[in-house]
Design a protein around this nucleic acid. Sequence first.
DNA 1: CTGTTAGCGCCTTCAC
DNA 2: GTGAAGGCGCTAACAG
Lengths: 334, 334
Amino acid sequence: MPVSVRDVARKAGVSVGTVSNVLNSPDKVSKKTAALVQEAIDSLGFVRNDAARQLRAGKSRSIGLVVLDVRNPFFAEVARGTEEAAGEHGLSVLFANSDENSERENNLLALFEEQRVAGILVSPLTSDLSEISRIRDRGTPVVLVDRKSKNKTFSSVSVDDVAGGNLAVEHLIDSGKKRIMFAGGPLEIEQIADRLKGAQKAAEKKGVKLEVAETKNLTVLEGRALAEQILARPKNLRPDGIFAANDLLALGIIQVLVVAPDVSIPKDIALVGYDDISFAGSALVSLTSIRQPSLLIGAQAVELLIEETKGDGAPRRRQVVFQPELVVRDSTRK
Amino acid sequence: MPVSVRDVARKAGVSVGTVSNVLNSPDKVSKKTAALVQEAIDSLGFVRNDAARQLRAGKSRSIGLVVLDVRNPFFAEVARGTEEAAGEHGLSVLFANSDENSERENNLLALFEEQRVAGILVSPLTSDLSEISRIRDRGTPVVLVDRKSKNKTFSSVSVDDVAGGNLAVEHLIDSGKKRIMFAGGPLEIEQIADRLKGAQKAAEKKGVKLEVAETKNLTVLEGRALAEQILARPKNLRPDGIFAANDLLALGIIQVLVVAPDVSIPKDIALVGYDDISFAGSALVSLTSIRQPSLLIGAQAVELLIEETKGDGAPRRRQVVFQPELVVRDSTRK
DNA sequence: CTGTTAGCGCCTTCAC
DNA sequence: GTGAAGGCGCTAACAG
């Protein structure tokens, strides 16, 4: 059933070497035989076996991307960014989704490594990069996405999350809010921890108390649950400003607060999200958010990967850090 | 640099066959030698070469998924559904994104075919399935996602888009609307054409005129552009009900209409979207939409793929069609 | 229980 | 411009 170069060669009355040449170095073959071979290929329905090519070549033309959550539009944008950049270099991107689960993350990483992809882009879950280091040391280039390599041993593309957190809470305080809540988690996710750190810095500086509400994950549902809890409190114990560690969470919170009879946004509770996903602007109450340049992050990650591969000597590793940006909308605008 | 089974065997003082057995049939090896081999594997940093395994096995443990647009949360959900179902069968899913571009679609399909994936799930762009048929005929199982196989030559999972379109427009008419606009495109995308067909059916039945505004794509941006055009018209020439072929488009339209001084939703213009993505409920004006069971669609597609692979005789192909469901929210509620 | 060996399909010298 | 042959890394069958 499967058709190999050998079958093609036989049908065309040439040798396998010639078939291979038609495929890979057409200029080495006369027009006539090339046509003959092509005809055999078409009539037999021959398709190159990539496994065999790769085995021979020792490497593949694909790069792997592991993100925390496909359903988060932020990562969808990052993915698009990688695709575009990779396409320009003749590479394909294969996505996969760790779903904020370490075991899945490791499985996917192992899968990509066994596939000998040209490189791996990963948005790692925890700060424990030992497994990832091992992969890199065995020869698969790795670039960290949305996460800075603190000790500079990895190339990485990230956004200054501490600055972002700071920006968010400063803005809340400047809007006159005094009882600020940070919502997000798990705090093992380093991006989240950094956003909290920035938030705390801003709160301290202005002498405002910051309540930390750790969540199990960063979904709309979790945001809704948290908002319900807040509403269950007596009014004077509720925060008057919430900084949610991502927009999904923030949107969930908005959904619930908007229908609460005794809360008005932003008068009673103001809200800042993070990521500035494209839906933030069209939320029930349009959402103030911290923008990350998602497309650019993806594209830059691919470039770093390629830089790292290119050099013949020691690989050049760089850490690119983008600055986040505050986008003010109705959820904090008086 | 690359470590092979042979290196491991040498280091452990055993033969390659034994190493392979440790990896694939641990029960055939004594505890002691297994430990010895494992140690060699760890110290050498050996990683199986999947290309070689695949070449040997003739098939892979991955399935490929090609969607129209990663950024559309509907497809993100479908992807999650496939992942979960595939995981239960020990398969991995590799996503890719045709970006509503035929050439990209074909490239990705070719890539997956050359990789000899265990199967391809594809949400095809146009109604021309000839290339996809060819792939299937050459031996790679293909399941159509979000698209019915009209002549039953493919397994497929879809939603009755004609019914969905009908549902949407009927609802608008029942809400008292008389000048309905269908927004969506390109109409070569069969799902969109079907939704239009359903819309026309409903309009005819009730004797209402349906204006068709074909768009270049199905994004928030395109929705905004369309809404601007509508606002440029004199008030009496504007539609009083819009059925947008997906939620992204609808959200874009809402964004613009909401800030228009002389339009109120749903009084002046009511709006129905399609997909019921999770952001529909938290839109500026919460969006009435036609729900598709996205997770289920993905999971079901994987099941069909596996069914098709299983049988020894002629492959069993099935067409599963889900029914869409109207979810009423503020954008049409008086 | 362990070792030896023959290919999976392809590409790339190297002769011709 | 073309053909023959070796080998990429792995597994499964077979022999011991």
